[in-house]
Simulated scan of single mutants.
Amino acid sequence: MSGRLSTHVLDISTGRPAENVVIELWKRTESKEMIKVLETKTNKDGRVDEPLLEGERMIVGSYQLLFHIGDYFNALEGESSPIFNQVPVQFEIANEAENYHIPLLIAPGGYSTYRGS
């Protein structure tokens, strides 16, 4: 049985899901090099349409999610410039059979993340 990696983005300044946030998934190789695994975008619910990793792609290792929140905030009408352009979240997948959900809560002046369920 394989786990999966998922995410979602919530804009806590509006209390709504963050739509059209570009998300990149990177994996650190054994030689410490970072390789891009995929790029996707959040839907109207602030989620991605498919798990970021699952099945045979769910591999133990070091990863980074890179959220492009500056573009999201700059696209909103009347929004002031955000202080953060991109948010990198580095994490470890220690067990490919577990589910890893990495949500991101954003506002123009800050962000927060945690391991969800």
Rank of each mutant, 00 (worst) to 15 (best):
T113C: 02
G109Q: 14
G70H: 09
I83T: 12
T14C: 02
E77N: 07
T14H: 05
E98C: 02
S2P: 10
E96D: 13
I106R: 04
V22D: 10
M34S: 09
G109S: 15
T7L: 15
I23C: 03
A107N: 06
G78M: 14
V21Y: 07
K32P: 00
T113E: 02
N74C: 07
P88Y: 08
Q64I: 09
N20H: 14
Y114A: 11
V87A: 08
Y111L: 10
L104E: 06
S117Q: 10
P51Y: 12
I35G: 01
E19R: 15
P88V: 09
S13Y: 06
Y100D: 01
E33W: 04
Y63I: 04
K32H: 07
S117R: 11
I35W: 00
L76W: 05
M34T: 00
V21A: 00
S13C: 02
R28C: 06
R28E: 15
H68M: 04
L53G: 04
A75Q: 13
S80V: 14
Y72M: 01
G109I: 10
E30Q: 10
F91C: 01
E98K: 09
R57T: 13
Q90I: 13
P51N: 10
G3C: 10
G116E: 15
V48Q: 03
N85P: 02
F67R: 05
T7G: 04
G116M: 04
E92M: 12
S112P: 00
H68R: 15
E50L: 14
A18L: 05
E19F: 10
S13H: 08
E19S: 12
E56S: 13
V21C: 05
Q90L: 12
